[in-house]
């Protein structure tokens, strides 16, 4: 267990460096001058990665749920849960930062933007997942059934994220979408900071999740020792 820390210090360093780069580059580098967005376009580097990070973390969670079903190993279940937890944290931060931005750019805290609705639904799904876990008492049954729900929910979440933007378009013809990030295609200059930002924030999420997984393992080890005594 101890080797897990020393050997894997490199990606933690990478995460830290990328995040410093995000803050420095994100605030100081040149950005396109777009109407309505103005200087807030820089939120692209801080708010949007929350959304990407959420999806990536939830994907990892779903993958570990699949692995759990293939190979009844409690460790996989712990990983799935903690990544779902980290994903939810990112989702909450994404929604809150999005709401702040929306209030000052679109003029309403909740403006029915597809991405906003999508992340709200994602959070709803994962809150349901946690409630499901809490209402099952047997450890193995809890792991198995919640893994099934996790996979199922993630699989329906993905089409939703792609469907929602299409639907709002079809409901408001001619409205052409709100002026926001969604309306613009990112150019290479924006991507130069954006992708490192996504990787950095996601790695931070992975780091937090890994800490919680290790604490969980310690706890179960402790229980085992107690049992052996």
């Amino acid at each position: 267990m101890a080797k897990l820390n020393s050997k894997h210090v490199i990606w933690k360093l990478l995460a830290s460096l990328l995040l410093f780069y995000t803050i420095i580059g994100g605030l100081m580098m040149e950005v396109p001058r777009l109407p309505i967005l103005n200087e807030t376009i820089r939120a692209l580097y801080f708010h949007v990665p929350m959304w990407f990070g959420m999806i990536i973390l939830l994907l990892i969670s779903a993958v570990y749920s699949i692995r759990y079903l293939n190979k009844d190993d409690q460790a996989y279940d712990d990983i799935a849960v903690e990544f779902a937890n980290a994903g939810v944290i990112f989702g909450v931060l994404g929604i809150v930062t999005g709401m702040i931005w929306a209030q000052f750019t679109w003029g309403a805290w909740w403006s029915g933007d597809p991405k906003q609705n999508g992340s709200a639904i994602a959070l709803m799904t994962y809150f349901a997942y946690f409630i499901l876990r809490n209402s099952l008492s047997d450890q193995q049954q809890k792991a198995r059934i919640s893994a099934i729900y996790n996979i199922f929910a993630f699989a329906t979440l993905i089409p939703l994220l792609f469907i929602l933007p299409r639907l709002t378009d079809s409901l408001h013809p001619g409205n052409g979408g709100n002026p926001g990030f969604n309306a613009y295609d990112m150019d290479s200059k924006l991507r130069l900071v954006f992708y490192p930002a996504v990787i950095g924030w996601t790695l931070l999420g992975v780091w937090i999740a890994s800490l919680r997984i290790r604490i969980k393992r310690l706890k179960s080890d402790m229980n085992d020792l107690e049992y052996q005594r």
Partner: peptide, 22 residues
């Protein structure tokens, strides 16, 4: 899924809402 848990009527509703939404 819900039938395996204890408070299944509530659980059925909250588990299915997000899944059925798309």
């Amino acid at each position: 899924i819900a039938s395996k848990a204890s408070n299944s009527p509530t659980l059925m509703a909250i588990l299915s809402f997000p899944v059925i939404l798309p």
